[in-house]
Amino acid sequence: MVPMPASKPAVPLTVNDFTVLPLRPPPLPSYPQETNHYLYLRANAPKVPTEDTPREVFLVNVPVDTTEVHLRALFAEQLGGVRVESVGFEGTKRVGKGITAPVIAAIKRGRKRKRGVENYEAGAAGQEVGRLPEVWDREVHSSGGTAVVTFVDKASAEMAVKEARRAAKSGRQIVWGAGVEGKLPPLGSARYQAHHALRYPDPATLQQSVDDFMTAFSAREAVRAKELHRVRSVPDADGFVTVTRGARIAPGAREEDAGKKEEEGARKREKRKVGEDFYRFQVREKRKEQQLGLVRGFEEDQRRVEEMRRRRGKMRPE
């Protein structure tokens, strides 16, 4: 049971250079307790600032159900009426320290990207095509996650942080989720039902997305093949020709071919080999090997019994 914050040492107003803003989510019948959620915010200070940096505010520990609508409403209605331009949520996965929980590691909530197309300089740079349809109507975020809020101008950003500090100091209650009613798809089973429906997109849409993807893909392949061909045939400045994997043989056939060659080679090698019992030293060595194997096996067994005894104590009938 978590002790109520009141009985604990006081919650500080700031942590490092973050302002601590307590939020009060309205209680639900299933969990009627009054709770405080602590949001940390400060002006954004990335290692490599961009021109938008002065307009940005960095949030830590956003509630899992945060949406852009939530943050717009929060700043517009409860924190000085400043206007939010956009919100970027932390997209990377989170892995707890020490545990490599594969469940978490396996799931990435990144935006869908056509990485291949983007990375390849000759392709349609930056343009995403053939994305599969979204399957959620509303994203949720990992607990303790971060977000970057971009305001319309620098003044608004400063205002927002100042207002948050004042609200925290005065102990004014900030209600989480006020002013978003009706603007968002609901959570709970309705959201899961929507998800279930979204997982089965219209076949035509799906076909279209696949077609787009495959067109882009074959274009990319064609460009790449051309590029490889060029590299292969034209010597570079030093007069060297780069060796690349040729695309002459179709992939399936190539694979089969390699397998066959290997098999043939193995057969040939087999033929050339001298029988195992040909030389006397071979027989002797084999025998020696066998004996050593016995001894080793015995030692191994002894060790195992020893181990067993250590683990279970004395061997006694139950």
């Binding site: 978590v2 989510p25 209680p27 639900l28 299933s30 969990y31 307790q33 709770t35 405080n36 959620h37 602590y38 509630p63 899992v64 159900d65 949720v140 607990s143 609901p186 959570l187 709970g188 089973s189 309705a190 899961y192």
Partner: peptide
Amino acid sequence: NKDAMLAEIARLGREL
């Protein structure tokens, strides 16, 4: 913040 997390879970599951 166990309380807040449980409240979040309650919001997430809603009537579930």
